[in-house]
Amino acid sequence: MNNLQNRANAVMAFSISAIFCLLAAIALSALVIPASPSGSIALDSIKVVTGRYDKNWVDFKTQDNEFANTLMQIDADLSSLFHWNTKQLFVYAIAEYSTPTHPKNQIFLWDTIIKSKSDAVLRKKGIVNKYSLIDVNKKWTNVHATISLHWNVVPYVGFMTYGRSQASEAYAFPLPSGSQT
C-alpha cells in the first residue's frame, strides 16, 4: 500500500512532466508561425567632430578623438512578429565596417523595445544616434559603413529568434568639421 508521501510524489512528478511537455510544445509551435517582417534604415547625414568624449572616457586627456553623429530614418513593419507567444521585440540599428587593424566592427546606433503589436510599425525620421560612434583607432579616415536594422523576438516561453533587414549601401565618413585635407 502506498502512503500519502508516495502518492503526493507521483502526482507532483506527473504534473511537472505534463507542464514540461506543454511548455515544449508551445516553444516548438512558436518557431513555425509564419512571419514576414520588413524594414529599412537609411542615414540622412553623418557628421564627424573632433574632441573629448567625456571625463569617464578612457582617453579623456586627449583632444583629438573623432566621434560621428548621425541622422537616420527607419521604415519598418514588424507587426507580423507578434503572436500569442511574443512578449516583446528588441529592435536596434547597427553600423558595420572594417578597418585595416580590425576586420569586423559593429557599433550600436539606436535601440528600442516594442511591447505591443500596435507599436510595431516604425516610421521615424530624424533619429539621432543614441550611442556614440567611436572607433578603436580614434579616427574615421577611409571608413565606409553599412547600416542595418536588427530585431530579437523575446517570447514568453521558448527560443529567442533573431532577424535583420538588408544592409544599406556603404556610407563614407566625412572629414571632421573644421579640418583640412
Rank of each mutant, 00 (worst) to 15 (best):
F20V: 14
D64R: 00
N152S: 06
A30L: 02
F60G: 10
N65M: 06
S17E: 10
H102T: 11
A42C: 04
S40F: 05
S98G: 05
S118W: 06
I19A: 04
L4T: 01
A30W: 04
A145F: 13
M1Q: 04
N129W: 08
T161S: 07
Q106S: 03
A170Y: 09
W57A: 15
L43C: 07
Y171C: 02
V153D: 00
C21V: 13
S98H: 10
V143D: 03
L28R: 14
L78V: 08
I16F: 12
D135V: 04
L28M: 13
A10V: 12
V153R: 13
P37E: 15
D111G: 03
L109D: 01
F14K: 10
L175C: 09
P34H: 00
F108R: 09
T141A: 07
V48W: 01
D77M: 14
S80L: 03
Y131M: 01
S118L: 06
S15T: 14
S116K: 10
E96W: 05
P34Q: 01
V48P: 03
T50K: 03
L175G: 09
Y92S: 04
S132H: 04
V154K: 07
V143H: 01
Q73H: 08
V157D: 15
Y53V: 09
K47Q: 14
Y97M: 00
D59P: 05
K47L: 13
F67Y: 07
K55T: 09
Y156I: 01
Y131Q: 00
T86E: 00
L28A: 14
S80M: 02
S36C: 11
F82P: 02
I147S: 03
S17W: 12
Q5C: 03
V11H: 05
E66S: 03
I41K: 08
P34W: 01
L22V: 11
N3D: 15
K117P: 07
F14G: 10
K55F: 07
S116H: 05
A25H: 13
V143M: 00
K138E: 11
F173D: 05
T161G: 00
L122D: 08
L78M: 05
A68C: 08
N9G: 11
N142K: 11
A27F: 02
R52T: 10
K87G: 10
Q63F: 10
S165P: 09
A170N: 08
V121P: 05
Y156T: 02
M12G: 03
G51F: 07
A42S: 14
N129D: 03
L175S: 13
R7I: 05
M72P: 00
K117M: 07
A35P: 02
K124M: 12
P155L: 04
G51R: 03
P155T: 01
T70W: 00
I16P: 09
Q180S: 13
I41V: 15
Q5A: 09
A170R: 05
I74P: 00
S29G: 12
V136Q: 11
T112K: 04
